[in-house]
């Protein structure tokens, strides 16, 4: 059984940029850092829904383009004084391909 879906090549995302993956349950933003790490988060800021894929990336953080909340790409947690979190998805790179966990295609269930 495959647990991961090949969503494209690492090279398809420029360094420090992000691109979207569309799913039935909304868009997932896939980030590539300056050091070639890849992260996948919901493309909706918990503040007012800002598209995080459009933010400026620095280190392993992204600043929301609408009101500058900052999120940790590892945990999805808002940094500093802001409170909230974005859902993250397991994603990895193998042989230059980006593999997104199939969980991304399942509807979000209430957190345990």
């Amino acid at each position: 059984m495959t647990t991961a879906i090949d969503i494209g090549a690492l090279e398809d995302i420029p360094r420090q940029a992000a691109r979207l993956v569309k799913t039935h349950f909304g868009c997932i933003a896939v980030f590539r850092t300056a050091e070639d790490k890849v992260f996948a988060l919901d493309d909706a800021c918990p503040h007012k829904g800002g598209p995080l894929s459009n933010g400026i990336q620095h280190g392993e953080q992204v600043t929301c383009p609408l009101h500058n909340w900052v999120f940790d790409l590892n945990t999805g947690q808002a940094q500093g004084a802001d409170e909230g979190a974005v859902r993250t998805y397991p994603v990895r790179v193998e042989a230059g391909r980006i593999l997104l966990d199939r969980a991304a295609l399942a509807p979000q269930v209430a957190a345990e």
């Binding site: 879906i5 969503i7 494209g8 398809d12 995302i13 420029p14 940029a17 691109r19 979207l20 993956v21 569309k22 799913t23 039935h24 868009c27 896939v30 980006i98 199939r102 969980a103 991304a104 295609l105 399942a106 509807p107």
Partner: peptide, 16 residues
């Protein structure tokens, strides 16, 4: 062009 196109469209892939 990467800015304007999604990386992948999984709405075609069946959900688990």
């Amino acid at each position: 062009s990467h800015e304007y196109r999604p990386l992948a469209d999984l709405t075609q892939v069946a959900a688990e």
